[in-house]
Design a protein around this nucleic acid. Structure first.
Lengths: 149, 149
DNA sequence: GTTCATTGTGAGTATAGGTAACAATGAGCT
DNA sequence: AGCTCATTGTTACCTATACTCACAATGAAC
């Protein structure tokens, strides 16, 4: 038997990798010294992928967290001056989250930190292996079933 | 240019995957209803990979967390009856962590939950792709530089 | 035998996220 | 109009993870 429990082994590897990725990202963020936490960085990154300023509910859905979590993250980012809460004139219940100029500058630094972290994590892989991994991760992420079902 | 920023893109994908893996594992663990948290599950899994009962310091090193964190995890697992603190007669400073029979049973259930989680995460991949991913993850994990340097 | 290193833990903190209740608002219906 | 119900963000609280720092007990080295 060449693969006694391939999926179980993959689970183990994924969990170990997950832990490592988180630790390394945290270290690089700390070194960047922007006062941005990993979850805040994730929100900023997501923010940049929207066309216009999204509603907080949009962010919660995209980040796959509960709306309450977004409130906390935006609180922190607003205190850092990276984002701004802007009330939506068309619907007074919604608040749109805008990236400030400071936030855009922060995003650049974060991007560099993220890339450095990636280089550290991916160090054992050749260029070809990174290409293959990228394709596999694309497939994994694009093929993910709808969140929360 | 075919790869404008491959490492940066990989970082994004890894971070998204990391979040997803963590959420899905948490859900499956909760469904298993063993009262075991993700970090405790990680410790149990690690425990099974040692030959004999390891010292808490060994666990901290292997898990790549600070020793204080191991204390908390063992506290919870001992309360669940999954492990036992056994003083080392050869060195009265060290405490060895033994898996109980209950713990061994728990491990089996956890293994199934982990495999189910893996199947859910890996659903978009074919068998061949899973093999390739497994090899890449092997390389990534084995080639990791020594912890904390 | 005094000094220094190892080992685990108490106390306190920060981050991440979850639930439940709620106030403000908008939408639909009669 | 009014009444009901869904949406949106937030207040208040709880849990899990992991960190630092200080410390007590022990062992090792000189």
């Amino acid at each position: 038997m060449t693969t006694p429990d391939r999926d179980g082994a993959l689970a183990d590897q994924l969990l170990r990798l997950t832990h490592r990725v988180h630790r390394i990202q945290k270290r690089h963020l700390h070194q960047a010294d922007l006062g941005i936490t990993p979850a805040q960085s994730r929100l900023l990154r997501t923010l940049a992928h929207f066309g216009g300023p999204p509603r907080m509910a949009d962010l919660a859905e995209r980040l796959e967290v509960v709306p309450r979590a977004v409130t906390t993250l935006v609180d922190g980012l607003e205190a850092s001056g990276a984002v701004r809460r802007v009330p939506d004139p068309a619907n007074r219940r919604v608040i749109r989250i805008e990236l400030t100029d400071t936030g855009r500058a922060t995003l650049h630094v974060l991007h560099d930190a993220r890339r450095a972290a990636a280089r550290e994590i991916l160090a054992p892989l050749t260029d070809e292996q990174r290409e293959v991994l990228g394709e596999l991760l694309d497939t994994l992420i694009d093929g993910a079933p709808l969140p929360e079902c």
